[in-house]
């Protein structure tokens, strides 16, 4: 693991603590009495999250652009699978295709696997070394380009 300076660690901790406090407030309500449990829960969650996932650098603009791309493509994916399910004749030609990823292990890969499963016609079925095994509903479609586009957008989200 690369050495992370304590300033980076403190800043990431502060940002996450604010997010967890917001989450607590949304789930429980911002009542003064709830914070006697809320503050310890937020601190515990922040400590755990820093242990499990050390600070990562994210770029704001690519994050926003990725979320928009992701939302639009999950909608397309849902429409696509709904049409296939309701069509009088099932038009499926499933296949298992390999996809080599250059994204580093950890958060970037987890995000890649999860977004593959929510984009049209593709489902991440396994990962071995650098190869993601993708189950596709229609082996004839050009999934390579879609997967490469998704990966490129995700790569821009993380600071090098």
């Amino acid at each position: 693991m690369p050495a992370v300076s304590s300033t980076v660690f403190l800043r990431a901790g502060a940002v996450r603590a604010v997010l967890y406090a917001l989450l607590w407030g949304v789930l429980v309500g911002f009542e003064p009495g709830s914070w006697s449990l809320g503050v310890p829960a937020v601190l515990l969650a922040t400590w755990l999250s820093l242990r499990l996932l050390p600070p990562v650098g994210l770029r704001l603009l690519p994050v926003v652009s990725f979320l928009g791309y992701f939302a639009w493509h999950s909608l397309l994916g849902a429409v696509d699978v709904a049409r296939r399910a309701l069509a009088p004749r099932l038009r499926l030609a499933p296949a298992l295709v390999p996809f080599e990823t250059a994204l580093p292990p950890g958060l970037p890969r987890v995000l890649l696997l999860n977004s593959i499963s929510l984009t049209p016609g593709t489902l991440s079925a396994d990962i071995r070394d650098d190869t993601v095994w993708v189950h596709v509903l229609d082996g004839a479609g050009g999934h390579e380009a879609a997967l490469a586009g998704l990966e490129a957008r995700l790569a821009r989200v993380f600071c090098a």
Binding site: D80, V81, L118, G121, A125, H135
Partner: peptide
């Protein structure tokens, strides 16, 4: 595998 596509998306 095909059923998972329908459920998740």
């Amino acid at each position: 595998h095909a059923r998972l596509h329908a459920l998740t998306k």
